[in-house]
Amino acid sequence: MPLITYREAIRHALAEELQRDANVVVLGEEVAQFNGAYKVTEGLLEKFGPKRIVDTPISEAGFIGMGLGASMLGIRPVMELMFWSFYSVAFDQILNNAANVRYMSGGQINCPIVIRGPANGGTNVGATHSHTPENVLANHPGVKVVVPATPYDAKGLLKSAIRDNDPVFFLENTILYGDKGEVPEAEYLIPLGKAEVKREGTDLTIVTYGRCVIHSLKAAEILEKEHDVSVEIVDLRCIRPLDIDTVLASVAKTNRVLIVEEQKPFASVGSQLAYMIQREAFDHLDAPIHRLATVDAPAIYSPPVETEQLPNPQRIIKAAIEALA
């Protein structure tokens, strides 16, 4: 199987869907001539032309709302946010309109829009550019939220997202863009809402998603070698819909849970998970549910300190040992 980057995997998904469906369009700041702020869309303009690959002005509320209006009439826009952090200036369009139009119209209108872009800390760009809004987004019934960790997942999930008839918010990660992974050449789809056990284990379940999956895999290796602990890692891949069954099955097996997330802890995705796990697997738990999140403050700039604010393998190892105590 070819090894390609997470960035290329997303690009391939876009190219395949652009090829397949003439109603798919890619719009965003710098996506066309500049080849994408993170080069995700590199070469797409050349291949598909300016009708399909469209550079927008810096007007997130305007162009996201415009894409949404177009989606109501059957266009399938894939909108790039240069950073998901900029969702705040388009909040009304993303969460008042995209999330609510279907409902308020009594099911008469669908909004098959995808909004994608990176949502992560760890790049020393300060608090304004480091938001991880998956909890805020997923709090809105009507939308779907996807956070892929690997090139394989990114491609298969994005293709499903583009074909989905509900609004899908796709949260990537600038630090993962260069990561390589095996991606088959043959077409495949990964259904939204299907978690994956990324590592099998028996002593502790780590429930996580996004870049924290990569950190957790590293931590699990060390825990195995140095502490003789067998960790199972469940990658949610999708926050809403949520594959809680895979989580519960793992908890039933290991009886201990550590949730790891690149989220501020208050009312995070992990908070919801912890509630659901205790509610539905209380009898399987040998210990309280543990959680490792981002240290609760705006994202710090200072490079070495930001690494410590976010979950990282060392912090995960420490949290895992506490969860096993």
Partner: peptide, 29 residues
């Protein structure tokens, strides 16, 4: 929030100005 897409009527929107990008999107489509 009245809607009737069968009559090309796309609402009915409660946020002042919020429908204006949507209308622009209808034109885009």
């Amino acid at each position: 929030h009245y809607f009737d897409p069968s009559r090309n009527y796309w609402g009915g929107h409660g946020i002042v100005g919020g429908q204006v990008p949507l209308g622009t999107g209808l034109a885009y489509a």
